[in-house]
Design a protein around this nucleic acid. Structure first.
Lengths: 182, 182
DNA sequence: ATGTTTCTGAACACCGTGTTCGGTTATAAA
DNA sequence: TTTATAACCGAACACGGTGTTCAGAAACAT
């Protein structure tokens, strides 16, 4: 079944809302943006907003849906070995810089990353490993990544994505590898 | 000047509010607690609440003021060398477990820790170090700590404070040392 | 006993959310 | 071009939370 043609109006409405939100976030930060702000800026009726999205959160996520899909593709395609997670992190530093989305979505990225890491770590960790629960390790690796990313965004990208990735790797890899091998 | 005797009523009111908040946090999490909830539980008039605290946040912080002071004492007394940060982290794991405060205050702890680390790192990092900004390093070390703490609390203390501290050290120390020496 | 401080609680103004519904307009398809 | 329909509008509403005000009651220190 070829996908239904989408009514121009819904297309227009959705875009307007996404753009409005995006602008407002840059102006005053996601936390302070209200539905009212968005629909005023987008010139969209209140009821219309709720016809399309359950909440601001949903609207926000909808904007990153393409990125998320791409991210998922990348993950499912990649082989997990000793190298790939670091290659992945580089890609993500680069992507996030492009997006200018800010750190609002980092929470979601973190969940995603955590799930991915956990899946693969469970296979890799020696079963009898008494050192560290895989959940904790995954949590740590994902959190560290988000931490660096947060700093990077807050400080408005003072270093290159490549440099950030290098630092991330230098900081996190040694301890991670060591604790996995023990 | 010997400190003014505090009116019993004030004491009573403050305590009631703190206890009520503390109970409610355990029941449904800080985010979902409202001022109304607190004053109902504490049996305190609405206006009274605002006579004492500007907001829920303030009330929350007031409860942790003693702990914060103690923390500050500990920090100012400690010598910063290659060992002490890890000794410190153990103390903190232990303290947090005692408090049962949950992770609501972790944000504040993080800021505090960050400031402390940054102060001392600036003295220690080779000045010509081109590898990593001290701010980023401090941010990473503090964030990692908070990350482990968060996991620990969320999972209701599945490991001992000592074990957690050991893991923290194993994960974070190697990378940190390496990047500082380079 | 008295003057002061604190507490009370109802009333109020304000703001944000999310829903409903009758009327209007844009769109796609015939 | 006509027409049925899907989308949009926006005002009104119910709800719940915040923070302020004020007059009167109660607890307190002396």
């Amino acid at each position: 079944m070829p996908k239904q043609k989408i009514d121009r109006r819904v297309e227009r409405t959705r875009r307007s809302l996404q753009n409005a939100l995006s602008e407002l976030i840059l102006e005053k930060g996601y936390e302070k943006v209200t539905v009212q702000d968005v629909i005023d800026r987008a010139n969209v009726g209140r009821s219309t907003f709720y016809a399309h999205f359950e909440s601001l959160d949903q609207l926000l996520l909808s904007g990153f849906e393409p990125l998320r899909a791409q991210f998922e593709d990348f993950l499912s395609g990649a082989e997990f070995d000793h190298e790939s997670p670091w290659a992945l992190s580089l890609t993500m530093f680069q992507e996030v810089q492009k997006q200018k989305g800010g750190y609002i979505t980092l929470t979601h990225v973190q969940k995603f990353l955590y799930g991915y890491l956990l899946d693969h770590l469970k296979g890799q960790l020696p079963k009898r490993n008494k050192n560290i629960p895989p959940e904790l390790l995954a949590h740590y690796v994902a959190s560290s990544f988000i931490a660096l990313m947060t700093w990077w965004i807050d400080n408005e990208y003072p270093l290159s994505a490549e440099k950030m990735n290098e630092i991330y790797r230098q900081l996190v890899e040694p301890g991670t590898m060591a604790i996995m091998m023990t």
